[in-house]
Structures are given as structure tokens and as C-alpha cells.
Design a protein around this nucleic acid. Sequence first.
DNA 1: TCCGCCCAAGAACGAGTGTTCACCTGACAT
DNA 2: ATGTCAGGTGAACACTCGTTCTTGGGCGGA
Lengths: 165, 165
Amino acid sequence: MRDIAGSVGIQQSAIYNHFPSKQQLLVDLMESHMRRLLDAMHNAVGTWGSPVERLVAFTRFHVTYHIDQPEDVFLAYMELRSLETDGRAAVVPLRDAYEATLRAILADGAASGEFRISEPSVVSKALLAMMTGVTVWFRDDGRLDRDAVADTYVQTALQAVGADT
Amino acid sequence: MRDIAGSVGIQQSAIYNHFPSKQQLLVDLMESHMRRLLDAMHNAVGTWGSPVERLVAFTRFHVTYHIDQPEDVFLAYMELRSLETDGRAAVVPLRDAYEATLRAILADGAASGEFRISEPSVVSKALLAMMTGVTVWFRDDGRLDRDAVADTYVQTALQAVGADT
DNA sequence: TCCGCCCAAGAACGAGTGTTCACCTGACAT
DNA sequence: ATGTCAGGTGAACACTCGTTCTTGGGCGGA
């Protein structure tokens, strides 16, 4: 709390004029992060298009977003476990809604025969973990830039669901 | 430290008869975990066999091991960032060696044309994150048991590297 | 039997934590 | 001009943290 206050140029005690507690501040932070992520994703993916097109859009969006905002995402994933029950109730549904979008894409593709997957709900969690993991190792001065990395993840995700022939 | 001491039935101060500091205790814990993981993996995978066979063995091992020892793995992944420089120097090479095994499998498969991947080093990190993510959601009383989940991950990994036709 | 020596207990330390309180200040509506 | 009030300050609180120190008991070797 002292660090946060210092980084915005006020005293620790002044934070409590805006947030009732550290827990609530964390909940607000994570909730607004998840809402921004959801909005941006819906903007980038939409509901039109084939499962392949939507999976490409989703993957490219998720990877580039996570590369561009690594600290937001890191905090949101890392601190989910330190939310108490009321905070969880506010954040977890947003996270589920996000995952549900990917799961729907996979289920559509599986139903139409374009994807070769037996368990969409497992594969959606697997792909999400795979894509999110990019934040752990990506460096701006690395050999591959964000677009090249995103391309690699798109190809890998497409192959993972058996979309290629 | 008080919790750890309590869970083994001694006082907090008695810990310091065995470990010089909390940092060193964490380093020892993570180092021994990584060594056990590496040994078990080398046992399960080996160097014989085709890239496909080795990838199957690696994936099945990694997923089931992480399902069976979730708390060890969770701690090892979560607390890597809280290791100071000397601790990192002891643990990171072990982690790199583990990933190098997967990367070698992928590179072999790519070289022989059995795998369709353009960036083995990226894909190895992607697959590792995908497999490790199973600890986040797997529950013993879930719809799928560990073997069924492992099968799903094996299929997904194989498809991800383009091993299927 | 006595001597070292692990290894444990218990109290205390200094530093850091989230939070509260009384007080002050400056802008705005009346 | 005056009263209101959101929003700041600085000190203090109760507590937890990792760590240190003194003390003492039990056990094996001489």
C-alpha cells in the first residue's frame, strides 16, 4: 500500500479515501482488468466467421494483448488465489466468460468436423495456458518480435485442434 | 516459517538448526524438487525411440506427474521469482535442462520432417506451459480421471506439432 | 561418570504490514 | 464572507515477519 501510494504521489492513508481496504483495491483492479480484456477480445474476435477464422483471431489477440500488457496480466493471474470469497465471486465469472468464448469456438469446430478434438473443455484450458505462458519468456529485444511470436502461436493452436490437413 | 515449523512439530527457531535462512530453505526445496522431476523424466522418456514416441512419453509423464504432485509443482513455478540471484543460479539451469529435453525432441522431429513446426524453441515453451497448466484446474473428483486427461493432452500435443496426418 | 554436542525451547529484536485517527487545507455553493 | 466537504497529511496502532540469542535437556564416546 505504501508503494502504491508513493507511485501516485500521495500518502498511504490517503488511499483509504478511495478504497475501503487493500482487498477491495485488488478486487477493483482485477475486475477492471478482466472487463477491459473481455471487451478487447469481443472487439477482436466477434461472432461471425468460421471456427478457424475465429480461432486465429482469438489466438492472435490473446498473445499480442498479453505481450503488450504483461504486468496487468501477470498480476491478474498471480493474485487470483489471494482473493477472498467475495472478491472471487466478482472476478471468476469474468474469467469464465472469457474462457467460454474460446470453448464455444472449439465446440463449433468440433461439431462441424473442422476440428479434431475430443474434449473441447480440456483443450480450451490447455490452449489458454499455452497462450498465456508467453508472458513468462517473451522479451522485447528477443530474436522474434511480437508478430512473429503471435504467428507461431496461431500455427501451433491451429494444428493443436487438428484444423490443418 | 512458523507454519512450516508447526507442521513438523518444532518451534520456529529450531528451523535454523537445519537451514541458515528462509531463502536457503526455499532454494533447497526447489532444487531437490527439480532434481526429482528431472530424474523421473529421464526415467520415463529416455533417448531411444522416434520423436513421436518420445513426445508421447514426455507429455504423458509431465501431465501425470503434475497431477500427482500439484503442490510441489505449484510452489516451484510460483516462487521462482522470489529467489534471489544465488538461488536462481542453482535452480534455473535445472529448469533449462528439463525444457532442453523437450526442445531436442521437437528439433529432431522437425529435422526428420515428422513434425511441422517452424520454431522449436517457442513451441517447446508453449507446450510446457500448456501441460503445466493442468495443475490449475484438475480435480480428483472431476469428470475425467488423470489418465483420460493425459490422453487428451497427448493427442493435443501431437497435433500441435503436426505429427498426425 | 563426566564431557561435548546436537538440537530443541522460549523470549526478544527490528523491520514491515494494513489500517485508523485527529487534524488541516483549498475549492465551491450559498 | 462563510460553511461544507472531499481529499490530503503525519503519527500511531496492533500485528506478523524472519532472525538471533540464551538456555537447557538428552545422548553417545572417553
